[in-house]
Write a protein that binds this DNA or RNA. Structure first.
Lengths: 150, 150
DNA sequence: GTCCATGCAAACTGTTTGCACGCGC
DNA sequence: GCGCGTGCAAACAGTTTGCATGGAC
């Protein structure tokens, strides 16, 4: 059911396969985390690639469109990108230190399907996102303030 | 378990109860939908309130902090605000026309509690958000292109 | 009277766009 | 070689901030 998640997907969708697009996708696929556009740009610069930030944005939009990458907001004002995973997962972000914990939750897809059917809509994207404080930050906090609730 | 959701919450939390704060909360609580900061500002202007956009933002941040309003990203780059609901609900946004459908999903809170326990973290906020195409847009789309998948 | 909250304008961040050139096909 | 993709710089949107004044308590 999932596409092959290769750069070839681009060509199939009728887009040109440029060096820049290849590079951006490579960075994203080879990184574990959730990169912001600027971080991708910086990494490309570090490896002396000739690319502009505008192209990074344009490429991300394209890769998102063809389903090779996903964007998450993670509670911040700017986007975070990751390679489209084989099976869906979601994110918890710590407001204290910014740490991200990923988790699976198959129920959510069932929920989406159910909602889709009931409302007669088509759900193309599912975002589930928790935020709060991780175990480490909870500890630090309670040490400072004497309670767990900020 | 839920606070009384009144402006008094502000004073209890040690903040001053100004006219501007009162007005912003009023606008949000009296509107059904999900307002953006600018829209709140515009409505206040319409009713000849003397307030600046900066204050709207500062007030929203404060109301969010004390739990009187919630912010959602709804897949757009800018925030949307609504009054903290008595019982949690989530959002579907249509990429075509922007329509928002709200839905309840009690399972999600259970999921959050479970995650919280398993990871030893504290979850303070839960966001579930679908996007896709509403029934109307699906129809228009298939009329134009002959298929349902953009 | 004290100090927090506000207005204003300027700064800032993340993202998008117009246009001329360059490169994939 | 045709036309999409790119770099560059400038524009843009939403949001935040510094500072002097005003109002809640």
């Amino acid at each position: 059911m999932y596409p092959e998640h290769s750069i070839e997907t681009l060509r199939i969708a009728g887009h040109r396969l440029t060096q820049q697009r290849r590079l951006v996708l490579e960075i994203i696929q080879h990184s574990q985390g959730h990169l912001e556009a600027d971080e991708i740009y910086r990494r490309l610069k570090d490896q002396h690639a000739h690319i502009s930030l505008a192209t990074v944005y344009r490429t991300l939009a394209l890769l998102k469109e063809v389903g090779l990458v996903q964007e998450h907001s993670l509670g911040q004002s700017h986007g975070h990108f990751e390679a489209a995973p084989a099976s869906p997962h979601y994110h918890f972000t710590c407001r204290g230190c910014g740490k991200v914990i990923e988790f699976a939750a198959p129920q959510v897809m069932a929920l989406a399907r159910h909602f889709q059917k009931r409302e007669g809509v088509r759900v193309t994207d599912v975002h589930l996102f928790f935020d709060g404080f991780c175990a480490d930050c909870l500890q630090t906090q309670s040490a400072q303030t004497g309670r767990n609730n900020p």
